Lab assay of single mutants.
Amino acid sequence: HAATELTPEQAAALKPYDRIVITGRFNAIGDAVSAVSRRADEEGAASFYVVDTSEFGNSGNWRVVADVYKA
């Protein structure tokens, strides 16, 4: 099962156990969220919340930071 994305309210009520950072070329924010979901799932997380997204220069590469939560 894939890790689910939390709302800001849900994330605020929970304590993350880790923070992950992924970088890559994403065509849309949805693609980045899917990549975070896969990584969170690999780490055994039940859910995640994207904290920050930023573009690296003009290369089209993105850096996505997310907190991950157990259950």
Rank of each mutant, 00 (worst) to 15 (best):
T4F: 14
G57F: 07
L6F: 03
G60S: 05
R39S: 04
R38F: 06
V64S: 00
A28P: 04
V50P: 02
D41W: 15
V65W: 04
V36I: 12
T7V: 06
Y49E: 01
S54D: 07
F48Y: 08
A12R: 12
E42A: 13
K70D: 09
S59L: 10
V36K: 02
T4V: 14
G44I: 04
V68Y: 07
G44S: 05
D18Q: 12
S59G: 12
Q10T: 05
E5R: 14
T23C: 14
H1M: 08
Q10K: 07
V68F: 15
G60W: 04
A32R: 04
D67K: 03
A71T: 12
V64H: 00
A13P: 07
S59T: 13
S47H: 15
N61L: 15
I20R: 00
T23V: 13
N27K: 12
S59R: 07
N58Q: 12
P8A: 14
Y69N: 01
V33L: 14
E43Y: 15
R63S: 08
A46R: 08
G57D: 13
R19E: 00
D41H: 15
D52I: 14
P16I: 03
V65F: 05
R19L: 04
N58T: 13
N61M: 15
A71K: 12
W62V: 08
R63Y: 11
A32S: 04
V36Q: 02
I20W: 07
T4R: 14
V65R: 03
R63W: 09
G60A: 05
A46D: 15
D41Q: 15
V51A: 03
A45P: 02
T53P: 02
A40F: 02
I20L: 08
S37K: 15
H1I: 07
E5T: 05
L14D: 05
R38W: 06
A71P: 12
T7R: 08
A11W: 04
A12D: 07
R39N: 04
A3N: 02
A46C: 14
N27S: 12
A28N: 15
Q10W: 06
I29L: 13
S37E: 06
R39I: 11
V21G: 00
G30S: 14
N27Y: 09
A45R: 02
V64W: 03
D67E: 09
Y69E: 01
R39P: 00
Y49T: 03
P8M: 13
D67T: 05
T7N: 08
A28V: 10
D52F: 13
V36G: 00
D41T: 15
K15A: 09
E43F: 14
K15S: 10
G24C: 07
Y17Q: 01
A28L: 09
F56V: 13
G24T: 04
Y49K: 03
G60T: 05
G24H: 02
I20V: 07
G57M: 09
D41Y: 15
Y69Q: 00
R25L: 08
G60H: 06
S34C: 14
A2Y: 14
Q10Y: 05
A11F: 02
T7S: 10
S37I: 10
V64F: 02
P16V: 03
Q10F: 04
G24K: 01
V68P: 01
G24I: 10
V64E: 02
R39C: 11
R38M: 09
L14I: 08
T53A: 15
D67V: 09
Y17N: 04
G44D: 04
A11Y: 04
Y49D: 01
E9A: 12
V21W: 05
D52A: 13
V21Y: 08
A2I: 10
A3G: 03
D52P: 01
A35N: 03
F26W: 10
G57V: 07
S59F: 09
Q10G: 05
N61H: 12
R63Q: 09
D67G: 00
E42T: 07
D31L: 06
A40T: 04
R39H: 06
R38T: 07
V51W: 04
A32T: 04
A28G: 15
I29H: 10
V64A: 01
Q10V: 06
I20K: 00
D52S: 15
K15R: 11
T4L: 12
K70C: 13
G60V: 04
D52H: 13
V33D: 01
A35Q: 06
T4G: 06
Y17T: 04
P8T: 13
V64Y: 02
N27D: 12
I22F: 01
S54V: 14
S34M: 14
R19V: 04
F56N: 08
N58F: 10
F56E: 13
A66N: 00
V36R: 01
E55T: 10
Q10L: 08
I20T: 00
Y69W: 00
S34T: 11
G30Y: 09
A66M: 07
S37G: 15
S34I: 13
G57T: 07
A32P: 02
P16K: 03
R63E: 08
Y69M: 01
E5H: 10
R25W: 13
F26I: 02
A40R: 01
V64Q: 00
A32E: 01
A12Y: 07
I29P: 10
D18C: 14
A32W: 10
